[in-house]
Simulated scan of single mutants.
Amino acid sequence: MTRLTSRVADWQRAGTRETIGGHRIFVRERDGDPNLPPLLFLHGYPSSSYDWREAFDRIAGHRLVVFDFLGFGLSDKPRDELYSLRIQADIAEEVARRFDGAPVVLIAHDMGSSVATELLARDIDGKLSFTLASALLFNASMVREQASLLITQKLLLSRFGPVLARLTNKPTFLRSFASIFSPSHPLTPDEAADQWALLTHNDGHRLLDKLIHYNRERVTPPTSDRWHNALRDWPGRLELGWAELDPICTEAVLRAVLALRPHAALTRLPGLGHYPQLEDPQRVYDLIQRHASQS
């Protein structure tokens, strides 16, 4: 198991591990103005809430909460779990209950945006346990049929997935991870070290084939239909922030999302790859601050 870097160790000390759904989940939060809506951040695969660390310095006023999904980052990583979007959405609901009924602004990226579609569906069904003020979704395979998966992702979803997960090492992971950053904002050595430390914490890299299960759900009815319908029918304010050089969630994915929701507000992020919040934090957090101020 790789040791946590000093930066990640500081991040760990700034948060807590709380029992949610029978598992220990890493949560970090910051108090804010009770007159402003709180912000709940959902992270992507295969990373963690550490992706959103800049929020604590760049977002003014609002109460903030980030957490690691089950199987990710500093949360528990059970070996026998079926890592469904529904389970992750259950955890998000539990975390959101701390807002005591205040309408919540949801900020999500990658897998987190897919979890968000389940939360939207629950809201449509009248079963969501908290009030959603609005949602800002960044690059994600929300219409997975149009996504351009990496070779490693395809292999992890195949019958060879368990073997690939067992063989994953630092050079192979970082080569794949670096490929989804833009040429002008490459993966830095510090970021690479931090991401690898979080992934391998409690041997999480051996679960990569299990953690990517949600990609199967995204193309399997009835769940796939449920989430597409949620994008189309949720009555609240939904905005998209889309990095244009993302090699996975390409323009084809964006067009498919907009076909479901033609009038969604869209902010394009030219020159950025799959992790815009890591590549150009100021641009991303300016967008988040603006979105939150309108909620």
Rank of each mutant, 00 (worst) to 15 (best):
E217D: 13
G273Q: 03
E118P: 06
W234Q: 04
L119I: 03
V284G: 01
I180N: 12
D203C: 04
Q282H: 06
H263I: 10
P38V: 08
A193C: 14
P221Y: 15
L211C: 01
R13W: 14
G271A: 04
D123C: 09
G112Q: 03
Q277F: 06
R206S: 13
P235C: 14
W52Q: 04
V143Q: 08
A9P: 06
Q195F: 11
L70Q: 01
F99D: 09
V27H: 09
I248P: 01
R13E: 15
Y45C: 07
P262C: 12
I91R: 02
I124F: 15
F26Q: 00
A259H: 06
L272D: 00
R30D: 09
S158D: 06
T250H: 03
A264Q: 03
E279M: 01
P276Q: 07
S182R: 01
L157N: 11
H205E: 04
L208S: 01
E251W: 08
H291W: 00
T188A: 15
S84M: 00
A9N: 11
S134Q: 08
A55D: 03
D57Q: 12
R24W: 15
D280N: 07
L128A: 10
Y285W: 13
A121G: 07
L132W: 09
F26Y: 09
L164N: 00
L199C: 03
L128Q: 14
H185M: 07
L245D: 12
L4R: 03
G21S: 03
T172H: 14
I288N: 03
M142E: 12
A165S: 05
F160S: 13
L254D: 06
A96G: 02
D51S: 00
R268G: 12
K77C: 00
T188H: 15
F72V: 03
L231N: 03
G21F: 09
T16D: 13
L120H: 04
A102E: 13
Y214F: 07
A55G: 04
G271E: 08
F69R: 02
D123P: 05
R237G: 08
L74Q: 01
D100K: 00
P222M: 15
T16H: 12
A135M: 03
S49I: 07
F69V: 00
P235I: 10
A55Y: 01
N202A: 13
Q146K: 07
Q294N: 11
G22Q: 08
A264T: 05
Y214T: 00
P38Q: 03
D76N: 02
Y50R: 00
E279R: 02
A140W: 10
T152P: 10
G44K: 00
T200S: 12
R226P: 08
N139C: 15
P46V: 02
D123Q: 10
K127F: 14
R79Y: 13
P247D: 10
A60Y: 11
I151F: 15
H291C: 05
W11V: 02
E251D: 10
A133T: 02
L199D: 01
G161A: 08
R144S: 11
D280K: 04
D57E: 13
V219Q: 04
L238A: 07
R268K: 08
F26C: 06
T223H: 13
A9I: 06
D31F: 13
W196F: 14
L70T: 03
L85D: 05
S224D: 11
P103T: 14
S295W: 05
L40I: 00
N229I: 12
T267F: 14
R144N: 11
N215M: 10
